[in-house]
Design a protein around this nucleic acid. Structure first.
Lengths: 133, 133
DNA sequence: TCTGTCAATCAGTATCACTGACGATTTTAC
DNA sequence: GTAAAATCGTCAGTGATACTGATTGACAGA
């Protein structure tokens, strides 16, 4: 299991490395693209990242001009971390294809049927604990 | 994938923790039990552990009286890290059952068929690269 | 015998997540 | 309406851990 994950992370890291990103960066970017602006704590909690680590992750993405910090008007304690136009373009036109290709590489030992099966099993494994803790 | 691995490691760690062990310790112990005495580098290479980290892993196991360092008579640069009787007893009577139970917990969302399927897919994923690099 | 390679070791370094505290803001309790 | 508790983001410090590079002893080939 751990070796499979190491392989996965390695493939993923090398896919996003050309963009100067780490895997945590990619996770945050795609999460914002999928669900819209979110607070740092929400991003951290959802993806098992420490809240203090998220500070530096967002720092880096902001420095690259990919996200911007805005206050959430409904609760000014929180940020609303959103994608900049540059960030959105990068995610949709460059990052997502690279990720799909990495996933394809990772699953390359499998037939199409097996790929679907494997990902579905993985999904259940992870989310079974969500409902029955 | 990473979340599944985190879950796996967490379950595994808590299974071996009552014996005062970490997951690396368990990996080394079972590898020796399965394949006999090995050098530190072999143990390290096989399981993706750094060679210098393996020094302290074996140090700890030796301190617990579970393994012993002997020189390999065929190549005296190498150790032949072997289980002590105490180590062998622990692995076979205590550790292995605990590991099996942990595995059972990890795979509990699955039916027996799915468990076999999942582990077989995982195995292929990891070992596909061994033959076709 | 000399040169290059490999095993184990160790000190130092780098990385990284996490703890605990803080100010600012919001929510809850009275 | 106000005081107390809770939440968000931040930062400095800590700790755990893996790795780098160098060293020593041992083997292997020319």
């Amino acid at each position: 299991m751990t070796k499979a994950n190491d392989l996965f992370v390695e493939i993923l890291e090398s896919a996003v490395e050309p963009f100067g990103l780490r895997s945590k960066d990619f996770i945050v970017l795609t999460a914002i693209d999928a669900l819209g602006p979110q607070s740092q704590q929400d991003l951290a909690r959802t993806h098992g990242i420490d809240r203090t680590t998220m500070v530096s992750v967002v720092d880096g993405l902001e420095r690259l001009g990919l996200v911007q910090r805005a206050r959430n008007p409904d609760d000014r304690r929180k940020y609303a971390i959103g994608l900049t136009p540059k960030g959105q373009t990068l995610v949709r036109h460059n990052l997502s294809p690279a990720i799909l290709e990495a996933l394809d590489t990772f699953l390359s030992p499998f037939t199409p049927d097996e790929r679907a099966l494997f990902t579905s099993l993985l999904w259940r494994l992870v989310h079974a604990r969500d409902t029955t803790p």
